[in-house]
Amino acid sequence: MEQIAFYIFSVLTIGLFLVTVLSSNVLYAMTSLAAGMVIISGLFFLVGADFLGVVQLVVYVGAIMALYSFGMMFFDATKDIKEKNTNSYLVFALGGMIAVMFVVIFSAPVIGENIQATYFVTGATNPQAVGLILFTKYLIPFEVAAIMLLVAMIAGIILAGKKMDDSLTTRDENHEEDTTFGLKDEK
């Protein structure tokens, strides 16, 4: 039963991500990527990792993909994109090399340790187990990731906030009437 579900989910995931890569239509690519993310969360549910599945749903589907699609909004999503392939052999070679590299990187620890769940947490529910492992064994990677996100956020604010002083929407301070109704907060 679970095996059947696993194969259905994997085939669907791979198929949807293939559509993402091969489609020349932004809308199809985006939709299939989001649907693939949802199905990956289904895989998590299948192995009993409810918490991770839900987090996958909330973070990837709800936030990250929504941000992507917000970026896509500046294109005409109903038209196909004409790709400019200058040298298809070069693209093929580079893509293949990157793929091989990824396979090597990810399979090295698998082959090395023969994939075993090293840190067993017993007597705790799903979110508690994740929390326990995250804040004991993997505390340093967790904090490093947090600092990286913080750096990225500060950089984003600085990049976006350069021209915040001269706003396009609100009027000049000197010409502001005394009797403005409403909730003006930004200068």
């Binding site: 949802v38 409810d50 918490f51 839900v54 749903l57 589907v61 709800g62 529910t125 799903n126 979110p127």
Partner: peptide
């Protein structure tokens, strides 16, 4: 009856934005 019911509801409603 998920043990992460609240998160599941939030996640499902979040994907409703599509």
């Amino acid at each position: 009856d998920l043990n992460v019911g609240i998160l599941f509801i939030l996640g499902a409603m979040a994907s409703g934005l599509y």
